[in-house]
Design a protein around this nucleic acid. Sequence first.
RNA 1: UGACCUAUGGUGUAACUGGCAACACGUCUGAUUUUGGUUCAGAAGAGUCUAGGUUCGAGCCCUAGUAGGUCAACCA
Length: 553
Amino acid sequence: MSDNKGPNFLEEIVANDLKTGKYKSIVTRFPPEPNGYLHIGHAKSICLNFGLSQEFGGYTNLRFDDTNPTTEDTEYVQSIKNDIRWLGFNWQHELYASDYFQQLYDWAVVLIRKGLAYVDDSTSEEIAAQKGTPTRSGTNSPFRDRSVEENLRLFQEMKEGKYRDGEKVLRAKIDMAHQNMHMRDPLMYRIKHAHHHRTGDTWCVYPMYDFAHGQSDAIENVTHSICTLEFIPHRDLYYWFIEQLGIFPSQQYEFARLNLSYTVMSKRKLLQLVNGRYVSGWDDPRMPTISALRRRGYTPESIRDFCERIGVARRENLIDVGLLEFSVRDHLNKVAQRRMVVLDPLKVVLTNYPEGEVEMLPGEDNPEDANSGSRDIPFSRELYIEQEDFMENAPKKFFRLAPGQMVRLKHAYIIKCEEVVKDAQGNITELHCTYVPESRSGSDTSGINVKGTLHWVSAAQALPIEVRLYDRLFMHEDVADAEGDFKEHLNPDSLQVIETAYAEPALKEATLEERYQFLRKGYFTLDPDSTADKLVFNRTVGLRDMWAKESKK
RNA sequence: UGACCUAUGGUGUAACUGGCAACACGUCUGAUUUUGGUUCAGAAGAGUCUAGGUUCGAGCCCUAGUAGGUCAACCA
């Protein structure tokens, strides 16, 4: 998984299990519940599960943990499958916990017969009270000692729909005084007269997570069942059911989930952002979901690289988004087509350049890729440069345009600022410059050396586009740790829309698949909101900006 | 007040299972550069939560603390 880092603890376990002959090949699974979209935290789990089986020879199943019909939907099934494929992984079998409903029911009957499960008429409040507290042991339900026959009959009737939701449950008979709360007669089945996205109305009793997950793993011969830390207390129960049933002994291992700075990672909170319209949807580019990252312009390669860099361990962590940004920049630098776009225009008139003339200047598509081609960029008397690339009273370290100063226009000529034109209010409206005819890129005989190079666009040929810039969704680094409701910490400036930016004409050809680097401005990708009349680009991430750092000093 | 999990530079992970703490990101220098990008060279930054113990030797083992996290949904 990692080259210059030692193996993570799971790789060690798997390697050892293979070495000792405990298994001759391994099976893992990725078990999402189809009740929301996948996020970057799931990506960590996906890379881990699929990565392990790839590394050690084996396979990974995709299994939907769909035991709660009231929250699940096929819309989510589709998006989950789509995201996993996009990330670059292929599952061996597409499975559903609901495929095992009959088997699970039969196993429940087995446990009843063994006297290890009983039907309880207690209300959910009563059951909660019976559980006791972490420091005080629980008490037995008054229905705990029903006969096997009665339990069998009652459970059968539950399944037949004779009872209303919540009227009865099936519980495992373990130990109400157990140190582990999860072992205090946990619920196995509850009644839900609800339509299931796959089994329709054939069932009105549904198994709980604990009575479905381990058995599903066992059915699939999953050797290493990997989950997050909060399932540690479930492990006893996981093994208890497997043992009592005498089925394939899958082993559960836990790792610490991913936490990313300046964002939230729980489906519950993400759902609130979507439903409360704080964002435009699950794929709003500011979201940490896979679909949002994709829309934002992240590549599968960069996400996989990120997951590899962060490692896998058992301690709580909060990873700096900066690391994710490093991974995208690293990949995009190698594949992005370079283009020039002026986001905040300032007009420049080259007073010594012939009026009406347009020359086409070649610009390489990607200096990092020897096989990439080049496109022609129109150059003329009137251009746009970036507002921030000019300063009337520039500090000594400002290597850009200033009165009397010279800069290189990328792929074009060296120009000199001769005059600053202002309106009645004193606002700068345009710059009058002269260009150095012998300084043309590729055939520069001027002998002039300049410190700065600017991007630019020819005014007459400029393509107006919309550009969307994103900042972190939350203002607090550790959102979960911040005071009050998490929504209070939303960053009001997380989205900045530039209705009209000027792009070089080649961008007309942009596609959804292609990644671009707008020179000196960052990496961008076309947004699906684009129409034939108006192209919309999302900024995936900005370039590293040493000047921003320098100018802050 | 119980049980369980965790504790290594700013962040995240390593350390051949007891042999003088490494890698990545970040930070700071400098070089190169027609992107203040990339690339390259280099530097600073922890003595491994604390206190004991075992040992020739401990980040790794033991004990006791401390700190953080998890567990009392008919959610997963």
